[in-house]
């Protein structure tokens, strides 16, 4: 097990479109200020933004964590349900269960999960009616 250097945790509130994106923004700002390579920061920004928006649109709310290790960054997104009934379908490009309200905000193009996978080095998702957990690693080398 690699040594954890630092862990940041953020609360995400369901359906709060006023501050949608603020968590991933502050993750991005912090990583830049720490001196993480810009191309890595961009990957994390894209992945964490998608994760944050997913929790806001689809879930009852949840949490996001950023863990910093010596040579990788881990983003953990956890929500309190209702869960994804068919993960394979959700992972396919263009598939979306977003509400009309969310679509009016320009979300719900069905690219969230596929995009997260695309920009991550390890991507792990588990889901039940209790909630969905996503763990993503992005290596810094």
């Amino acid at each position: 097990m690699e040594e954890l250097i630092k862990r940041y945790e953020y609360e995400i509130i369901a359906n709060d479109f006023d501050i949608a994106g603020s968590t991933s923004s502050s993750i991005k700002r912090n990583l830049k200020s720490i001196g993480v390579d810009p191309s890595i920061v961009r990957k994390v920004a894209i992945v964490s933004y998608e994760a944050e928006i997913n929790i806001i649109i689809h879930s009852k709310g949840g949490k996001m964590c950023l863990e910093i290790y010596k040579d990788k960054l881990t983003i953990r997104a956890h929500d309190n349900g209702p869960g994804i009934s068919n993960i394979d379908l959700a992972m396919s490009e263009g598939f979306s269960t977003a509400t009309n309200e969310a679509r009016e905000f320009g979300f719900g193009a069905g690219m969230g999960l596929p995009n997260m996978k695309k920009y991550s080095d390890n991507f792990n998702i588990t889901s039940s009616s209790e909630g969905t957990n996503i763990d993503i690693d992005i290596y810094m080398d």
Binding site: I5, K6, S33, I34, G35, V36, D37, I68, M140
Partner: peptide, 12 residues
Amino acid sequence: QALNIKAGIERL
């Protein structure tokens, strides 16, 4: 920025 991540976190 070949900055040491640990030093960066400390500064932050």
